[in-house]
Computed example of a mutant assay.
Amino acid sequence: MTVPLSVLDLSPISEGSTARDALRNSLDLARSAESWGYKRYWVAEHHFVGVASSSPAVLVGLIAAATNTIRVGSAAVLLGNNTAAEVVEAFGTVDALYPGRIDLGIGRSGQRRVEALRAVAAGKTVPGAPRETVVREGVVIPAPFDISGLLTSPRLQASLEALAFPGAQAPEFEEHVGEILALLNGTHRTRDGIELHANPGEGADVEVWVFGSSAGPSAELAGKLGLPFGANYHVAPSSTLEAVQAYRAAFRPSDTLAEPYVVVSADVVAAEDDATARELASTFGHWAHSIRSGAGAIPYPDPATALPLPEREGALVEDRLITQFVGSPSTVADRLEHLQKLTGADELVITGVTHSHEDRLRSYQLLAREWGLPALLAA
């Protein structure tokens, strides 16, 4: 049986357009994705860059209001930027109006940055096992990319400081997640034993997810708590398999899940034929390089006017380029099937960016048809 497909939307701002355009495009894509049979519509959290998904809870509420049945959520709220109370009250507010449709995805990006800063201060780098790019059962597993330079870039540090009060420190990830779950189920107590009840938030019918990029604390905690797990192949393709394996090894049945449940992400651009898709995706490297260089995501470049990406810059994002799924619907679907089989994913979440909103809509529509999503077949 074919696994469900879902959408991860960054609300990209295209070159020559605005954040207003990007947000309106997100609402349009969400309504279309619902009609085409996608299971969920998730939004990311990014700040001070050329994407408009800076406030996940607000955007989740707007998308829930603009749709009827599709599940809507975050992938992911970054706990380093938000307190447990802020997260629970925000998503509890949305759930109060759209009950049973909201996913609360959380990630530990803030903690990863702190760890990277400590490592650099100690004269170390973020560890990564050296290896060559390989292909396993039709899936490209690239050599790891050392993210320590990115996480410690001055611009990113400035952004982090702008998102928190001076001297503020986020709790350890496990403690932070525990606070969220306690606030949701009404068992939260302060260090002094004082009861706090989030209203709205307590008793909210939200589905809590944990997202991770490696076989580290996120994967292990998701398994230990019996929560569903999202593995980021589109961001960290070198460590996706290890992350999924760590999650399954740590999994314990819970009131939420009797068995592990994994969603794996993939970056996709589909078009009527392979050549057209390659042209639409030809500036993905430029966009990915702006992120990897520490400058922050630029507005997505127009393939009609962009110069070719220099070889040196292309080398910095090679792992992202060779793991992007680009081509005709059948080409993309074939590669997605290999990814699903290798990871054992219960669901795939598709993210994709093109300069033209119409091309992005068409990409998702073509894939939905090729994959056989039920709403499209019934239409």
Rank of each mutant, 00 (worst) to 15 (best):
P301F: 01
V94I: 01
A64V: 01
V244L: 05
P200T: 15
S11Y: 10
E318S: 01
D255A: 06
D334P: 07
P144H: 12
S153V: 11
A378P: 08
V7T: 12
E132I: 09
V139A: 12
P310N: 13
N232M: 02
T354C: 04
L257N: 01
P130G: 04
K224Y: 01
A243Q: 04
G352L: 08
T67P: 15
E279P: 12
Q157F: 04
D359T: 05
G193S: 11
R31I: 08
A65R: 12
A116P: 02
G92F: 09
S54R: 03
T18V: 13
S238V: 04
L366H: 00
A162H: 13
L104T: 01
G352C: 07
S293C: 06
V120W: 00
I194K: 05
G314C: 05
V49M: 12
A143T: 06
V349I: 14
L339K: 07
L339S: 09
R118H: 07
P154V: 03
G73V: 00
R101G: 05
L376P: 11
G344I: 12
E34S: 09
L307Q: 15
A222F: 03
T125K: 07
A295E: 15
V263I: 14
D319L: 13
I70Q: 06
I102Q: 00
A121L: 09
L373I: 07
H355F: 07
E132T: 11
A143D: 06
W209K: 05
L8H: 03
D28S: 15
D274N: 00
V88R: 02
F229R: 12
A198V: 02
P228E: 10
A30K: 13
A90K: 01
S214T: 15
T69M: 13
S35I: 08
E370G: 12
K39W: 13
S148D: 10
T354G: 03
E89T: 14
T67Q: 15
L8C: 04
A168S: 08
P374N: 06
I13P: 00
A143E: 07
D273W: 05
G138L: 06
V140F: 07
S26K: 12
P329F: 13
A22H: 03
E45I: 12
A96T: 14
V120A: 00
L321A: 07
V235W: 07
T152C: 08
P329C: 11
A222Q: 00
I147T: 13
V60P: 02
W209L: 10
L97D: 00
G201L: 00
N81D: 10
A222K: 04
L241R: 14
Y300K: 11
R191W: 11
E207R: 09
L321Y: 03
E318I: 04
R118I: 12
G344W: 08
A44V: 11
I298C: 09
E242N: 11
G352N: 08
D205L: 03
A266D: 05
A66K: 02
T133F: 11
E34T: 08
Y300E: 10
W209R: 04
T276Y: 01
L10I: 06
V317G: 02
T331V: 10
G167A: 05
S74T: 02
I102T: 02
S282E: 14
P253A: 08
P217K: 15
A19G: 09
G201N: 01
